[in-house]
Design a protein around this nucleic acid. Sequence first.
DNA 1: AACAACATATCAGAGCTCTGATAATATGGG
DNA 2: CCCATATTATCAGAGCTCTGATATGTTGTT
Lengths: 154, 154
Amino acid sequence: MGKRSDEVQLPEVGEGKRGEAGHLGYLLRQAAGAFRHQMDRALADLGVTPPQFAVMTMLAAYPGISNADIARLALLTPQTVSVIIANLERAGAIQRAPHSVHGRILQIELTEAGRSQLKACRERVEGLERELAEGMSEVEEAVVRAWLVRVARG
Amino acid sequence: MGKRSDEVQLPEVGEGKRGEAGHLGYLLRQAAGAFRHQMDRALADLGVTPPQFAVMTMLAAYPGISNADIARLALLTPQTVSVIIANLERAGAIQRAPHSVHGRILQIELTEAGRSQLKACRERVEGLERELAEGMSEVEEAVVRAWLVRVARG
DNA sequence: AACAACATATCAGAGCTCTGATAATATGGG
DNA sequence: CCCATATTATCAGAGCTCTGATATGTTGTT
């Protein structure tokens, strides 16, 4: 922009309504967007998206869970998870097999390739995670964590 | 789900890794998703999406700004904002006119219909915003706000 | 055994978000 | 004046997310 004569003064991140005086909902949206963007960049060269990373992490913790299980864990709809799962399957990071007893359920597991890719992702995300807590006291971090959980609960 | 014999124990929101012991990045993602979902529901019957509400709010505060200006304010790409603007224009909530001097720039403003719709949205969102701060002391709220701004700054 | 209720997976359509590429306009330096 | 640089808008393609609808399979009741 720069030199327009009729220019309106727009605030920077952290200033005015974009700062600590703004709406909590707006600040939450802004912070989550910025962090998602950082994750995007950190994982881009691995060809993994943040949602894919999240789903792979859940599959590592709970092998054999279903599409519907993941949806409940991630607070997403089964249809949304279905898209992510389809992309992971096409990339060879996961495999699905019908449940031994319940024909309709497809159990999902990471492949060997998926596990090694997840490890590479974790190394890249580690630093970002550490930065999130940097500069906060233990008490402050506890306040933030408690707030985030309460908001997630609805 | 329910009664499967080989069932794995999956945590509820707020329990285990989904609770205060989890990764801050995961908690942030979960909280932002839950709040976005609440907004979706609150605005659904008005036919407005949360991003559209955010853009309309910015246009009310800074009439005549451009697509690129909005992108900077919202921490989004110009292409993303372009989609939202196109949908708002099709709905008749905004109008665009070439800048008097700079031919390439399109200045955007709310229409009368857009302004009244924005007002209706605000009434619905007001309560959600209040709930976000509910139960926190002033000090705690200040900690949360400071953290959100720092994360947004990157 | 038959039926109702529920869970699971999936298809279709819409909107949001990104990266990459292209064209038009504005600004500043030679 | 001409060209390099930067800004703006837009097109194309991919992935994520939702709502609504459909088909299949399981469970519990009658």
